[in-house]
Write a protein that binds this DNA or RNA. Sequence first.
DNA 1: TGGGTGACGAGTC
DNA 2: CGACTCGCCACCC
Length: 115
Amino acid sequence: MTKSTDFFERVYEVVRLIPYGRVTSYGAIARFIGAANSARMVGYAMNASVGMPDIAAHRVLNRNGLLTGKHHFGGSNVMKDLLESEGIEVIDDQVKEWNELFWDPSEHLDRENFI
DNA sequence: TGGGTGACGAGTC
DNA sequence: CGACTCGCCACCC
């Protein structure tokens, strides 16, 4: 940890800490781990996380609460099903209560543990 | 070693 | 309103 090669690890660590039934955005995670302009890298990291059971990638959406990465979930509605199974309402590939369910890492986690 | 890539985000037209 | 463009930067080939 605390190395550039652990960029993905930081992302995964934050994703692991996303509470059940809550969601966050790639940009929020990026800023939290000190890569404010690297939101794309978070998505890139999630792409590499496919196959990791403990990484709830479906809880990470884009800034609009859109299920942009659903195609990478193996199926077409797998991501939606996972979200709905957690009580998150998804309409037209978008989280309905996005503002209500949004979980900001910077408000619940200690940055010093990730940088 | 160098260049292409992309599950984003913010700004612009 | 929506559609488009650009910057960003760690990773892969």
